[in-house]
Amino acid sequence: MFWNRRKTRVVEQESAPVWVEVLAPFSGRALTLADVPDPVFAQKMVGDGAAVDPASDTLVAPVSGTLTNLFPTGHAAGITTDEGLEILIHIGMDTVELKGEGFTPVARQGDRVTAGQPIIRMDLERLRSVAKSLVTPVVLTNPARVAALEPVASGDVVAGRDVLFRVQVRREADER
């Protein structure tokens, strides 16, 4: 009888939903994707998530994982979490055309990163004068792994501390 109860409890623990918290990559103002001045992001074509209008100059990892993507121009980064979520952080709009001007990566593609760890430093003053927008979407690019996504933050957020949104990981029943 005790065995049965114990087993049941373990099964319940194993089937508990796994949530991943995605932190603000910059300090600044939290926005919805609809506020991003680019239809590809605003219409969630790249993926669902949220955005920040940055007031700080260092992009920090919003989640722990592997830095699977650090674009050579330093304006975008992608992290794959241990749960298999792929998160893209894209600094500003049309910033690829700056060809790296104003962006200094401080991590390397392939690095293991911890949430809150600096990835890219930027020259905020210079970029404000040359970039069309610095609004930074943080989006999940593999929706097949997502069971639910809930926005958390609104208003002012602090980089690496405040949760921007949280994601429930979809279980892959046929895996393992």
Binding site: V46, G47, T68, N69, F71, P72, A76, G78, T80, E86, L88, Q109, T141, N142
Partner: peptide, 10 residues
Amino acid sequence: KSILGVMSLA
């Protein structure tokens, strides 16, 4: 079919 994958080719 992976955005991060395709972007990682740079």
